[in-house]
Structures are given as structure tokens and as C-alpha cells.
């Protein structure tokens, strides 16, 4: 599939993620059936698709959590599926992953959740430097006063924000968002969309946003990719994907608008 030039969006044609011919199956279940995708520096790509269409599998492969059966996955110039040990860890420090469930460590306070990746990866950092980094990340997500709270005391939207802050603390070059607005009310969803755009501007990140929320895809994605039955049916601007004449895509969009 041809990828459009993006000078008007990101002023860059340098790719940070390049996926070619990606296949992934779980036993008899073929989830991804030949995915091609390029994400350029500074660009947000929203991946739309039904539940179970393989969206989350795709970003887990990009993050190196799953291995592809076939195909090439190049992240920041490295074949992530072929890396191991220290090399993989070094690359992962440059990738942020915001989980659908937020995945906050529930035995730790918000402060400890944010400080944990720093203390484990940068042993030379002092407590003052860690505190500054934590406060900066909390400030970036608009929750500077939540340091002492436990994850169980936070609302769904706050947990998502803290989850994003925990990834931002490592200053990633790529952000991967797995269903950032799922289970949230429209107001909180729009705040999260705003946060994703602010992160892109403030941290100059490139992002892949996995969602089935059209508003989220439209407001955060510089490009939108429509994933159906393990393949991308269309990649382009949101309007281009929206106006696709494919019957399945039309059904997907009409259902969302009825909702």
C-alpha cells in the first residue's frame, strides 16, 4: 500500500517504524495476515479496527512483547524481533507503551510507579533527580498532586494519565497507545485525546494509537489506518478512510456514529 508524503504534517520522511509483510497466528487463529505500515518521525498514526482484529497484537509486536511469525519489523532502525537482552532493553527505553488497562503496579503509590522505571534502569540517579523527573511527568499529564495516592484510589481517566506519565518519564521517541479512551466517558476521552496531542508536541514523539473510537482516531491521528480481518484496508487521512466505499468499513463507521 502506498504511503503518502507527510511533509505538511510532520516535516519529516524519516521512518521510525517500518513493518513489511507481517504475519502472526495463535494456533489455528490467523490474526495478522500481511501487514505493511510505515510511521514517520513526529507522526501520530491511529489504527482503527473491530475488537479482535489484531490491533493490540500489532503494537505488542512493535514493542517486542510478541514475536512475528513472518515479516520484518524495524523500530528506530533495528529489527526488534531479532534483538535480545541488553540491546532489546536499550531499544525499549526509547519506546513508551500505554496499556489499555493502564497496568499500574497496584502495590506501589503513584510516585513509586513513576520512579520505578528510573530507579531500575538508571541506578546513578539521585533521589532529587528522580523526584524532579516524576514531577515533570505528572505535570505533563496534569496530575501533579497525585503522588501519594494508590492506583486503586484513582479514576479510570486518572489511571490512564498516570500510565502515560510512567512511560513519559523515560522520554520515549515512540509512544504506543492501546485503546487510550476505552471505558471512559466522552469528556474524559476528549481530555485523553488532548493529552496524546500534547505529548506529541511537547516530547516530539511518533505514536501508534490503537483504537475503535472514531473521535480519538480523528483528533489524534495525522493518518488513520483501517485494520480489518488481519489486513489494512486503507491507510490515509481520516476523511479518506471514512469515505472508503468498502462495505465492512462503511458498517464500522455507521455503527460508531449511531453510538
Amino acid at each position: 500500500m502506498e504511503t503518502p508524503k507527510l511533509e505538511h504534517l510532520t516535516n519529516s520522511n524519516e521512518s521510525v517504524i517500518s513493518i513489511t509483510g507481517l504475519f502472526k497466528s495463535f494456533g489455528e487463529l490467523h490474526v495478522l495476515k500481511g501487514i505493511d505500515l510505515t510511521v514517520f518521525k513526529g507522526e501520530n498514526v491511529a489504527v482503527l479496527g473491530k475488537s479482535g482484529s489484531g490491533k493490540s497484537v500489532l503494537i505488542k509486536i512493535i514493542a517486542g512483547l510478541l514475536k512475528p511469525d513472518q515479516g520484518e519489523v524495524i523500530v528506530l532502525g533495528k529489527h526488534i524481533d531479532k534483538l535480545q537482552g541488553r540491546e532489546l532493553d536499550e531499544l525499549r527505553l526509547r519506546i513508551g507503551f500505554s496499556f489499555q488497562s493502564s497496568a499500574l503496579y497496584d502495590s506501589m503509590s503513584v510516585y513509586q510507579n513513576l520512579a520505578f522505571p528510573l530507579t531500575m534502569n538508571f541506578k546513578h540517579l539521585g533521589s532529587k533527580e528522580i523526584k524532579n523527573a516524576v514531577m515533570e511527568a505528572l505535570d505533563a499529564v496534569g496530575l501533579p498532586d497525585k503522588t501519594d495516592q494508590m492506583p486503586s484510589d484513582l479514576s479510570g481517566g486518572q489511571r490512564k494519565r498516570i500510565g502515560v506519565a510512567r512511560t513519559l518519564i523515560l522520554k520515549p521517541e515512540i509512544m504506543l497507545y492501546d485503546e487510550p479512551t476505552s471505558g471512559l466517558d466522552p469528556v474524559t476521552s476528549s481530555e485523553i485525546n488532548e493529552l496524546i496531542n500534547n505529548v506529541q508536541k511537547r516530547y516530539k514523539t511518533s505514536s501508534v494509537i490503537i483504537t475503535h473510537d472514531l473521535t480519538c482516531a480523528k483528533s489524534t491521528g495525522n493518518r488513520t489506518a483501517m485494520l480489518l480481518d488481519g489486513r489494512f484496508l486503507k491507510i490515509g487521512k481520516f476523511e479518506e478512510v471514512f469515505n472508503t466505499q468498502d462495505e465492512q468499513v462503511k458498517r464500522f463507521f455507521s455503527y460508531n456514529f449511531i453510538q
Binding site: 512483547l65 525499549r92 519506546i95 507503551f97 496499556f99 497496568a103 534502569n121
Partner: peptide, 9 residues
């Protein structure tokens, strides 16, 4: 998984 993507074994 969150630990793994934060480069923590």
C-alpha cells in the same frame, strides 16, 4: 508486560 516494556526483566 509493563515491566518488560520499561526494560525491566
Amino acid at each position: 508486560d509493563a515491566m518488560e516494556v520499561s526494560a525491566i526483566n
